[in-house]
Design a protein around this nucleic acid. Structure first.
Length: 303
DNA sequence: GCGTCCAGGTCTACC
DNA sequence: GGTAGACCTGGACGC
């Protein structure tokens, strides 16, 4: 029988767990999953010790997040601290959006965002996982992205009950392009994924250092784009996941949505979109993303 | 069933 | 510095 342990993580009074969790599609990419009825986030996770656990989190009260750990082995006290750190980071608990709300001024398209305190979104425990998942979104339908990520976990991650952890760089580096093509169906992205993992596992590339990088966003973007398979859109998206919102991460969905909201359905050239969000400066990417996803975010908050 | 077409970003090669 | 064509998968469509 699994051993369980429960604890709470204290968060700011205005922290909205579910708003953070479902702000992007990341919450349904394994090894994350959600229960939309009970507003619960799950993650099968491999701890630093190599132990595999299930993390269940939700929010019953303002000011705290409720966490339950489940393990088939022993759980020692250090796990609590490690998981708390992971959750704070994944949920963006300590990110501050005051400057963003100021930058919005009285922009009518986002008054609601200030009202409900939008801005946080789910990211992965490691930059590596965020990069792999972002590559899996490129030139792919959402269904294909979910499938690639699920099969990566199933075929290469550690097992916990009937679920799997996200593979480590070493686990992904240990496979081959051919295996990924045949088993994961990541197609022409397969060599990119293997190369990325091998450079990280070999110590030649430290993507985790991007989180605290002293570089300005343009310079960091250049470095991110040096990863094969990562182009303009993917680099911008990775920057967002690093907490930098000064690029737009335009994909076809965003372009279409913008044209619906601001162009009367007529396709808008990228320059028009860029110009529209220019006033928001370093927050332009967040302004765009929130405005385009309003309908996912406001309805939930009210129900 | 089966075949054809298309959407979805990035890479390479070539201006 | 810009761009045509190739790269894969899966869903839509027509037979």
């Amino acid at each position: 029988l699994p051993v369980t342990q429960e604890f709470t993580v204290s968060v700011p009074e205005d922290f909205d767990f579910w708003l953070s969790v479902h702000s992007t599609g990341w919450s349904v990419l394994e090894p994350f999953s959600i229960d939309e009825e009970n507003l619960t986030l799950y993650r099968v996770h491999r701890l630093e010790s190599g132990e595999t656990i299930m993390i269940t989190s939700s929010q019953a009260n303002k000011g705290s997040v409720d966490v339950r750990l489940e393990s088939l082995g022993e759980l020692d006290g250090n796990y609590v601290r490690e998981v708390e750190g992971i959750l704070r980071s994944c949920l963006g608990v300590d990110q501050d959006f005051t400057a963003f709300y100021e930058a919005l001024g009285d922009y009518p398209g986002l008054a609601w965002a200030v009202e409900i305190g939008a801005g946080r979104s789910l990211r992965c425990p490691t930059v590596f996982e965020d990069v792999v998942k972002t590559i899996a979104t490129t030139n792919a339908s959402w269904g294909l992205t979910k499938g690639i990520v699920r099969r990566l976990c199933e075929k290469l991650g550690d097992e916990y009950q009937d679920a799997h952890t996200f593979p480590t760089p070493e686990q992904l580096a240990g496979t081959t392009e051919e295996f990924l093509r045949a088993e994961v169906k990541s197609g022409y992205r397969s060599p990119y994924l293997v190369e990325l993992a091998q450079r990280i596992a070999g110590g030649g590339l430290d993507v985790e250092a991007w989180r605290g990088s002293p570089l300005d966003s343009a310079a960091l973007k250049k470095e991110i784009k040096a990863v094969k398979g990562v182009g303009d859109y993917a680099a911008d998206n990775i920057l967002k996941l690093l907490g930098r919102y000064d690029f737009l991460a335009l994909d076809s969905w965003m372009r279409k949505k913008f044209s619906e909201i601001h162009g009367g359905g007529k396709p808008a050239p990228d320059e028009v979109i860029v110009e529209h969000y220019e006033p928001f400066g370093e927050w332009k990417g967040l302004a765009l993303a929130l405005e385009m996803t309003k309908e996912w975010l406001v309805t939930r908050k009210d129900t």
